[in-house]
Computed example of a mutant assay.
Amino acid sequence: MTYTVFIDGAEGTTGLEIAQRLEGRAEFDIIRLSDAERKDPDCRRTSLNFADFAILCLPDDAAREAVAMLDADSGTRVIDASTAHRTAPGWIYGFPELVGPSVVAGAKRVANPGCYPTGFLALLAPLVRAKLLPRDWSYSVNAVSGYSGGGKGLIARFEEEGDIAFRSYGMSLDHKHLAEMQKNAGLQYPPVFAPAVVPAFRGMLVEIPLGLSAMRTAASADKLRAELARYYADAPLVTVHEDRPAELLLRADEPASDRIDLWVMADEAGTSARLVARLDNLGKGAAGAAVQSLNLMAGCDPLAGLRV
């Protein structure tokens, strides 16, 4: 069976990545609009309601507008790559490894996770669920991403100015990712989030430092690692590493990937640990996650079109 797919926002960074992954796949017929048609609300409305699947690669307000264009009896199933619906009632969080592949497969409305939350939740959510780390701790997150995660404006800034070595942001401590991090990890408090951008096009490192000796109920680093390995044993896109490398690198020419790698580092005394995730902000952190959800919803091979 062939399904029609409309990528609303197909000219953006994430939309282009999704289209590349769907190129040449017989299961999907992509609805393509001209520049003029993309700006015509009636053309967008028709495409949204005609498609079997709509993938929204839009700013938050435009994503909400697109959902409002769907008729009450529309059969269109939606994957929203924006932040707009990640904690909204009636939407499934599109992280199959956390919510279950069958849950995503049966969903009509799927909210794609954010790139930073993907790393944070992949590390922390299973450990909190297993009660190996406390839900009532004030966690912090240190993370760096390639500049493609900021969209066309930030891409232009990094490539045109050429001398930005490090960009720290989110200084108001009210980043839009906090709500989905807190909710999907089951935490009592939102984390303290310190995001930054480095002069690499893609790729990211997400780290959660842990003062294990200060926590009332924390398990040892070995037990944390073992639980992550058990939890992701059947997850083909997730690798839990046993080694403790002296350094982890992001390179300026980081290759595209839809995988995520996890590490648990600890000091010799076992008093402190660092949970670290490495992923592609445009892969498992955006386009790859959307294609993974689309595959499940369409009943296709979950890894089809992914870079594994």
Rank of each mutant, 00 (worst) to 15 (best):
P209A: 06
P209T: 02
P209L: 11
P209H: 10
L210H: 05
G211A: 14
G211F: 06
A214I: 03
M215C: 12
R216G: 07
R216W: 06
A218W: 10
A218L: 11
A218Q: 04
A219W: 07
A219Q: 03
A219L: 02
A219R: 02
A219P: 08
A219C: 02
S220R: 13
S220T: 15
S220M: 09
S220I: 00
S220D: 10
A221K: 08
A221E: 06
D222K: 13
K223G: 00
K223A: 15
K223F: 03
L224P: 07
L224A: 00
R225N: 13
R225C: 10
R225Y: 04
A226C: 12
E227W: 12
E227H: 08
L228F: 08
A229Q: 15
Y231W: 13
Y232V: 09
Y232N: 11
Y232W: 10
Y232A: 08
Y232H: 07
A233P: 00
A233I: 04
D234M: 07
D234H: 14
D234Y: 09
D234G: 01
D234A: 15
D234E: 13
A235R: 03
A235S: 15
A235L: 04
A235N: 09
A235I: 02
A235C: 15
P236V: 02
P236E: 08
P236M: 10
L237D: 03
L237E: 08
L237Q: 10
L237T: 05
V238T: 12
V238K: 05
T239V: 10
T239D: 10
V240G: 08
V240S: 09
V240P: 02
V240W: 03
H241F: 04
E242N: 13
E242P: 01
D243Q: 14
R244A: 14
R244S: 12
R244P: 01
R244T: 13
A246T: 12
A246D: 14
E247S: 14
E247F: 13
L248W: 11
L248Y: 04
L249K: 15
L250T: 10
L250W: 06
L250Q: 09
L250Y: 06
D253H: 13
D253Q: 12
D253V: 00
E254C: 04
E254L: 00
E254N: 12
E254S: 09
E254F: 00
P255K: 15
P255S: 12
A256V: 11
A256F: 07
A256M: 06
A256Q: 13
S257C: 06
S257N: 05
S257Y: 04
S257T: 11
D258V: 08
R259C: 12
R259S: 09
R259W: 01
D261S: 12
D261C: 00
L262V: 03
L262G: 08
L262E: 10
L262W: 06
L262Y: 07
W263I: 08
W263V: 06
W263A: 05
W263N: 00
